[in-house]
Nucleic acid binder design. Structure first.
Length: 565
RNA sequence: CGGGGCGUAGCGCAGCUUGGUAGCGCGCAGCGUUCGGGACGCUGAGGUCGGAGGUUCAAAUCCUCUCGCCCCGACCA
């Protein structure tokens, strides 16, 4: 491709709206263009990268026996209502009406359509197992699109679904996919970390995410440097510090004038925050929930949502709390009636806590569970933090941030049951098909590669997914010798099937070098009067500082070698 | 949805407080001189100032409404 004809121009200044590296570089390199919030066009260079990633993914899916098919983005809303997942996705679902006022959803994922399809084509255990996938556009009305291609509202995803007769089969399919995913990331030059995850709106039991560690990542990851326990902070467990053993003392009221927050109360009474219990109020599907947790620990809303089995969860407003007859600032689980009380396991980690008395400016000392109050539900609803102990080995946990570049789920049978995807087992008994779901976002993967592979000059594409592996860069095109050599070499390389980006512009060396670096083409080939003097051509890798001089006759061979590495 | 910010030429910005009919840099076009890390000179094209309404002799500038975009939070595979 001649740069003089290439659609898409590099920019000297970075558009102000971008502050994530991958977003900045994609815009600066002229690879993407924003159409609306979270909606982008891919220009030719980015699209070439995209297609290379797509082919790697397709290859790995096919290798483990996946069969590619294509399902529609446009789906009847009824299908979503059958599984109830229209509620789980809530406002994230794009819904539109057709001319007859029928409601349709733009698919955010395809479990429903897939299960419906399979229900018509699988009758017997002999038809299983099955791995079906597609590479399709998905639509999600994200509350906040951000960071360029990392969180968008329209995106391409490879989604594969596994269908098995039982749990063992599911585990086998799951492990196959896990390996295939590792291969994909490795081939894309992306170190991806496997982490335990929450399954969110997709549902199901076990789920793992693949994370690329980067500061700009949206997700917090908790990990143990000792035993390699790694989990999304939404899901992560930890062992909270225990307070010292104490004999329970009698309950005692204390005046705490003006002290409402945990910080104020613990300062006022001169006790550590881990000796207090705090009350946090949520509204779950319209109902008030009283959450009790140790004062120094934060509530993990994902865990809370899961134990409550609710679809909508938000913090209660002060007015809602007061309306329920609760004294904000001194709320107490003691004597709480007619309201759902959910407590974190941390309330059993010590004795003689400070807690509210449900009277203004008053708290209790020596509150002990279960002596002084009852709860409707006791569960782990605490946010794990760095510095706490690993649930597996007891070592100190640390935390990092990452971008989720893949998510795999063991779904089980809830979707197949709802949509009637059953099979007849060898005993003639009808049973629901056991499903798994495996997603990977292509655009996000592309962006993550840039987050991971760049320097202050620009992108450094891994060879396997670079838009072009070779940047042919003649300097001083006015020199007939340079121009002729460049034209001939370009024609030669093209005829050998090599993909070459040919900078045939009459630009100064500085401009060409900077564009070559910005675009991140792995191998730069320079022809100039200087190299012509020794009848040679200069070859430099984007990832390295040093260049080498190669005799003109040997250049094609040398480039072939470099591309094979 | 809550908080903050921004919409003026393809991109980055100034002008707005104090109304007088739009400017700078980059990029773009032409010519010439340059040229191994974003050269220089000259000439030139390009904007109904996000949109609607209002105030005024006069609005990019003041007022009202509205649309869009970004960031933080909430939320979210």
């Amino acid at each position: 491709m001649r740069i003089s004809k290439l659609f898409g121009k590099t920019q000297r200044e970075i558009p102000a709206e971008a502050d994530t590296i991958s977003h900045q570089l994609l815009l600066k390199a002229g690879m993407i263009h924003q159409v609306a919030a979270g909606v982008y066009s891919y220009l030719p260079l980015a699209w070439r990268v995209f297609k290379k990633i797509e082919n790697i993914i397709r290859d790995e899916m096919d290798k483990v026996g996946g069969q590619e098919l294509m399902m529609p983005a446009l789906q009847p809303l009824e299908l979503w209502q059958e599984t109830g997942r229209d509620l789980a996705f809530g406002k994230g679902l794009f819904i539109l009406s057709d001319r007859r006022d029928r409601k349709l959803a733009l698919g955010p994922t395809h479990e429903e359509v897939m299960a419906e399809l399979v229900s018509h084509n699988v009758q017997s255990y002999r038809d299983l197992p099955l791995l079906l996938y597609q590479i399709q556009t998905k639509f999600r009305d994200e509350p906040r699109p951000r960071a360029g291609l990392i969180r968008v509202r329209e995106f391409t995803m490879k989604d594969l679904y596994s269908f098995d007769t039982d749990k063992d089969g599911l585990n086998q399919s799951y492990n196959k996919m896990l390996q295939a995913y590792q291969n994909i990331y490795a081939r894309c030059g992306l170190p991806a970390l496997l982490v335990e995850a929450d399954s969110g709106a997709i549902g199901g039991k076990d789920s793992h995410e693949f994370m690329v560690i980067t500061e700009s990542g949206e997700d917090e990851i908790i990990n143990c440097p000792n035993c390699q326990y790694t989990a999304n902070a939404d899901k992560a467990q930890s062992i909270k510090s225990k307070t010292e053993d104490q004999e329970p003392l009698p309950l005692e009221e204390v005046a705490t004038p003006g002290a409402a927050t945990i910080e104020q109360v613990s300062n006022f009474l001169k006790v550590h925050q881990n000796h207090t219990l705090k009350a946090v109020f949520y509204v779950a599907d319209g109902k008030l929930v009283f959450v009790v947790i140790r004062g120094d620990i934060e509530v993990n809303e994902v865990k809370l949502k899961n134990v409550l089995h609710c679809s909508e969860l938000r913090l209660a407003s002060e007015a809602e709390v007061i309306d329920a007859g609760i004294v904000a600032g001194s709320a107490s689980p003691i004597g709480m009636m007619g309201i759902n009380v959910v407590a974190d396991e941390s309330i059993t980690s010590g004795a003689n806590f400070i807690a509210g008395a449900n009277k203004p400016d008053t708290h209790f000392r020596n509150v002990n569970y279960p002596r002084d109050f009852k709860v409707n539900l006791l569960a782990d609803i605490a946010r794990a933090r760095a510095g706490e102990e690993c649930p597996k080995c007891g070592d100190k946990l640390s935390s990092t941030r990452g971008i989720e570049v893949g998510h795999i789920f063991k779904l089980g049978t809830f979707i197949s049951q709802k949509l009637g995807a059953f099979f007849i087992d060898p005993n003639g008994v009808s049973r629901p098909i056991v499903m798994g779901s495996y997603g990977i976002g292509l655009g996000r993967l592309l962006a993550a590669v840039i987050e991971q592979n760049h320097d202050d000059k620009g992108i450094i594409w891994p060879l396997a997914i670079a838009p072009y592996p070779i940047y042919l860069c003649p300097l001083y095109m006015e020199s007939p010798q340079v121009a002729t050599t460049a034209e001939n070499l370009y024609a030669d390389l093209e005829s050998q099937g090599l993909q070459v980006l040919y900078d045939d512009r009459k630009e100064s060396p500085g401009v060409k070098f900077n564009d070559a670096d910005l675009l991140g083409i792995p191998i730069r080939v320079i022809i100039s009067p200087r190299t012509m003097e020794t009848n040679s051509i200069e070859v430099k890798r984007r990832s390295e500082k040093e260049s080498e001089l190669v005799p003109i006759e040997g250049i094609a061979t040398r480039l072939e070698e470099l591309i094979k590495d």
